[in-house]
């Protein structure tokens, strides 16, 4: 069995790029590739999140484990995460996860001394490592109008006399283990739609009929050119594959007026990051992780486990060995 080469050279075109948002096209590849990328971004790009909390004093209304859970979900800046070690395979500390190579220590001390309720927020967390800090939304472009109001993520509210004092240890992890380590808020893709309007047939329609076709789509895909009064595609990507236009056209008795296909090899990705990693970095890290995973598969090539694990796929990868 001689393995044919399935190698392709996908292209990426970036449409929009912000710190926590990216929109790009991925072309000349198939759904498996696109989905692998999506899955890795959600579940396997490592970040740092609080994993262990030692509570010294907690006289707040929330229980210890409640606060610990909330702390865990606070996104921490994790540019370092790729180079950090997992504490389970850290040699320096025998895996107990307290050393500088695999962990970051945080401290929180808050006490309410006046009559006003005190909001303890992520800004009250003091990190031992300046590269790993709670994500700050105040300066991001998509943030709030008045940065003064934005005090980070509320952990707990304290009333007079209540106190919270704790030590927290953040570790590297992946989203597969717990959602707190997932760097992605949203990762999704869609097939790029290809919309054909049969111009000749369209000419036969009255303006009213044209508007009804345009308005049949819940999203603004079509528009009428005010000058030429022609129906044209305004934003093909707004199309949600809802078939409403096609149904409308069918109902009008003009099948084939509009035809929509999904391009099988072209994807539009939307990536939103939690702020732990920049959206662009998230993509690069994902590709890196994906490569590592493929390497791991290739390295286990000759082993029996490899065969057991991958079965026919393994044989296929080896090129029909």
């Amino acid at each position: 069995m001689e393995g044919a080469s399935y190698q392709r050279f996908p292209k990426v075109k970036i449409r929009e790029l912000k710190d926590d948002y990216a929109k790009f096209e991925l072309r000349e590849t198939d759904a498996s590739m696109a989905n692998a990328l999506r899955r890795v971004m959600i579940a396997e790009v490592p970040t740092i999140a609080i994993d262990l909390v030692e509570i010294e004093v907690n006289s707040s209304v929330l229980g210890d484990e409640f606060i610990a859970h909330r702390l865990g979900l606070i996104p921490l800046t994790s540019e370092r995460a790729m180079s950090m070690r997992f504490s389970r395979d850290c040699d320096a500390c025998d895996g107990d996860g307290q050393c500088e190579f695999c962990s970051v220590e945080f401290h929180l001390r808050a006490k309410c001394i006046n009559d006003q309720t005190l909001d303890v927020t992520s800004k009250d967390l003091y990190s031992s490592d300046h590269t790993v800090v709670p994500v700050d939304f105040s300066d991001s472009s998509s943030g709030f109008e008045n940065p003064e109001d934005q005090r980070g993520i509320t952990i707990v509210k304290l009333r007079k006399g209540q106190e919270l004092r704790l030590r927290a240890i953040a570790r590297k992890g992946i989203g597969k283990d717990h959602a707190k380590w997932s760097p992605a808020a949203t990762v999704t893709f869609m097939y790029e739609p290809e919309i054909h309007i049969n111009e000749e047939m369209m000419e036969t329609l009255s303006l009213e009929e044209k508007t009804s076709v345009v308005e049949s789509s819940p999203t603004k895909v079509f528009g009428i050119n005010p000058h030429t009064q022609q129906v044209e595609v305004v934003d093909p990507e707004a199309y949600t594959y809802d078939d409403e236009v096609l149904k409308k056209v069918e109902a009008m008795g003009k099948p084939g007026l509009v035809e929509i296909y999904a391009k099988e090899d072209s994807f539009i990705f939307t990536v939103e990051s939690t702020g732990a990693v920049k959206a662009s970095q998230l993509l690069l890290n994902a590709i890196e992780v994906l490569k590592q995973k493929l390497d791991a598969v290739r390295l286990s090539e000759d082993t029996v486990e490899g065969d057991d694990q991958f079965g026919e796929l393994g044989a296929h990868m080896r090129g029909g060995g």
Partner: peptide, 27 residues
């Protein structure tokens, strides 16, 4: 209201399979 916000009027969405990445057979 749904249509105004870009959803289908009947509440159905076009979903992709998380396992394969291909569109699901039904809305």
């Amino acid at each position: 209201t749904l249509v105004k916000h870009g959803f289908c009027y009947n509440g159905k969405d076009f979903l992709y399979s998380g396992i394969t990445g291909t569109p699901l057979q039904a809305y």
